[in-house]
Amino acid sequence: MPEKARVRPVHEADLQEKTLTSLAPYRDKDGRIYTIWATLAHHEDALRRYLVFSNHVLGKNTLPLTSRELMILRIAARAQAAYEWDQHVRIARRAGLTDETILAAAGGAWEGLDELDQVLLTATDSLVERQGVDDELWQRLAAHLSVEQIIDVLYTVGQYLTIASVINTLGVQTEGDLALPLPEPVDRKEVSA
């Protein structure tokens, strides 16, 4: 990732009223629009449309909250997307996940996680690497999840791969110090060996 932003966030005063309305729920504790959304506001029409999908994945997803966060953190670590990592470490902690669990999921050490999370993280890796899952992994997913939930797995991975690409390409900077250091990416095969 670039050391500084390639694209600076749009100042709030320069945004259309309908964009400000769409961004109302996407503000930090001090009332500032999160940097990722202020950066994407350079394309306001696309941002407003994207927020509808993002709201489903982050707010109305059928997957368990903690499982979804572990998937996102695995993607962030693999992509070395510091902004995504930092935001979702904070969300994961609020959801009750420990730093030890967060780092285990991100680093590929899944043996201590429950079966569902192991299957979801395996699917996350497969989707990142191959943009699909084989029949054996499909059966494992189907043993734990409904088709609706499997679709949410696909949407979650797809959205957060997109956001990681945005962060790393545009140089979206964190909004302060990282809540937890971003681990180096580890291939699951290395951990299993």
Rank of each mutant, 00 (worst) to 15 (best):
A5D: 09
R8D: 12
R8F: 09
V10T: 10
H11R: 14
E12K: 12
A13I: 00
D14R: 00
Q16W: 05
K18H: 15
T21L: 13
L23F: 01
L23N: 03
L23A: 07
R32V: 10
T35H: 11
A38Y: 09
H42E: 06
A46W: 10
R49V: 11
S54K: 13
N55P: 14
H56T: 10
H56C: 09
V57L: 10
G59L: 12
G59P: 15
T66I: 14
T66S: 13
R68K: 11
M71W: 11
I72S: 07
I72K: 02
L73W: 05
R74H: 05
I75R: 00
A76H: 03
R78D: 05
A79R: 14
Y83H: 01
Y83W: 01
E84R: 06
D86K: 05
D86T: 11
Q87L: 10
H88E: 07
V89F: 03
R90H: 06
R94E: 08
L97M: 11
L97T: 11
I102D: 08
I102K: 02
G108N: 03
W110Q: 03
E111W: 02
E111P: 12
Q118N: 05
Q118A: 07
V119T: 04
L127I: 13
Q131V: 14
G132E: 08
V133L: 07
D134C: 08
E136F: 06
L137W: 03
W138P: 09
R140A: 15
A142P: 03
H144M: 14
H144P: 11
H144F: 09
L145K: 01
S146M: 01
S146Y: 05
V147Q: 12
I150H: 05
I151S: 13
D152M: 04
V153F: 00
L154N: 15
V157M: 07
G158C: 11
Q159H: 11
Y160N: 15
N168K: 10
L170C: 07
T174A: 15
L180Q: 02
E184I: 06
V186L: 03
K189N: 15
E190Q: 15
S192K: 12
